[in-house]
Write a protein that binds this DNA or RNA. Structure first.
Lengths: 249, 249
DNA sequence: TAAAAGTCAACCAAAAACATTCAAATTCAA
DNA sequence: TTGAATTTGAATGTTTTTGGTTGACTTTTA
């Protein structure tokens, strides 16, 4: 990996989260600690970040565009593993739907750049553009809490596309109730995206299993699940109905 | 493979890719390392890319159009005056189209909050939401330079709405050629928005007068112009065809 | 507070990438 | 067709980058 590429990744990450751990960057870039340390020193000298014990922190002047709220760093690690694997399934030239939500968002740094992405996640666009990925955004009502695009107009936009692969975030995965999410409007968008896609994947960490929320999206059989550590017993319970790929460090 | 051909390949790849590895180019062109190195040196001398260890990186100035940030520092004061007046025309309950672009953007802080806004400007959304304004975003291709939504999908989205008022940014205003903007795709969106609106306003500082750019949007008579200081003579020249509101401090 | 764990800068040797040189191959003009 | 000029690929020795190791330093844990 080239130096400017690493630098870009570091700075992009700092746009989203106030701090980065050194180890995160080592994983993300497949470089050694030494290399990342040197990168951080350089970027600090250029006044693009501030080094702190264990990693680096964002400077004030980047604060102009505060984007995504920092989630608990514990989940981020797991989500990133899931995201990395999920992204590895995408091939050059694919047309891909990336759902709004934090786990799908984490896929963006790992995406191949020669693809077309359609998304209903407003927050995703900046990251996609900085990866130089051709990006289409659905239209619609902007849901203030999640900044997802929903509603009739989003549905209409979506109908113009067909996808090789789509990657969904969900809030609940349950053997009886299938995939669920709290907002019916978001559920509708997800449902349609699924019908327009050849290979459907749900990306979800283990906390989503055995949960049920208000609005039903689809049956378990309608998607392959990509997740992290999960209990053997629970696993078999689900595997009757769908395929589960378990990713671990 | 001929030299100009290789150069084109290199530059094309950099348009898509931010960085290229030397080895990539060796494979892609079936040339030797030496040859590619020489190519890169030449292209660097022509200021078309930057060499980095292991390959080459794209320069900033390959972005054709000035970006949002650069633009917004110019003429901010004047634009804000124009924007403030324009916003004062909006009444509670109106449905309003706010065009992508910096002058329309400046209106957002002055908007009444009990309205519905539709926009094709990605950058506007954050600001609109922080004002607690109900916001619809058009779908479509995200133009990387201006973060405006354009294309067929944007057009389709737009057809779902009707507006009491719309506020357009333009790049050129000319007695013979009417309103113009550089990008034909953006022009198409603006055109449609105009036909869907009862009261059409163009917000533009004086620098736009007597300018003509590539794509025609509409005739002068199709919109009322809101601008700042402007020469009396020039004013009368335009007033045969349209109404101009001049705002001053 | 002391031990343990984690993080750090500095150093080193290996690997990768580099500029330079030169001869062969190609192109062009006479 | 010949000869000069340009372009190309390989060989050379040099420079940069990289990942591992060291011992010093900082933070966390007990």
């Amino acid at each position: 990996m080239l130096e400017p590429e690493r630098h870009q990744i570091i700075l992009d990450l700092l746009k989203k989260q106030n701090t980065v751990k050194l180890q995160e960057l080592v994983e993300l870039t497949n470089s050694s600690e030494s290399t990342i340390r040197r990168d951080l020193s350089q970027l600090e000298k250029q006044k693009l970040l501030k080094r702190v014990h264990g990693g680096a922190a964002r400077l004030q002047n980047m604060l102009q565009e505060p984007t995504m709220v920092e989630k608990s760093s514990k989940n981020v690690q797991e989500k990133r593993l899931i995201a990395k694997y999920a992204a590895s399934l995408i091939e050059e030239g694919d047309s891909v739907y990336i759902d709004a939500g934090t786990t799908p968002f984490e896929m963006i740094p790992f995406l191949p750049s020669d693809i077309v992405v359609v998304t209903n996640g407003l927050m995703h666009v900046e990251a996609l553009l900085s990866r130089n990925i051709k990006t289409f955004l659905l239209g619609g009502y902007v849901k203030p809490t999640t900044k997802a695009l929903v509603g009739r107009s989003a549905i209409e936009s979506l109908k113009n596309f067909r996808f090789d692969k789509c990657f969904m975030g969900v809030n609940g995965i349950h053997p009886d109730y299938g995939f669920t999410t709290p907002d019916p409007e978001e559920a509708t968008v997800k449902q349609l995206a699924i019908t327009l896609t050849r290979d459907v994947y749900v990306v979800a960490d283990e906390s989503k299993f055995s949960e049920v929320t208000f609005a039903r999206i689809a049956d378990l059989k309608d998607a392959m699940i990509i997740t992290n550590a999960i209990d053997k017993e629970i696993l078999t319970q689900y595997e009757r109905e769908t395929t589960i790929k378990v990713v671990s460090a």
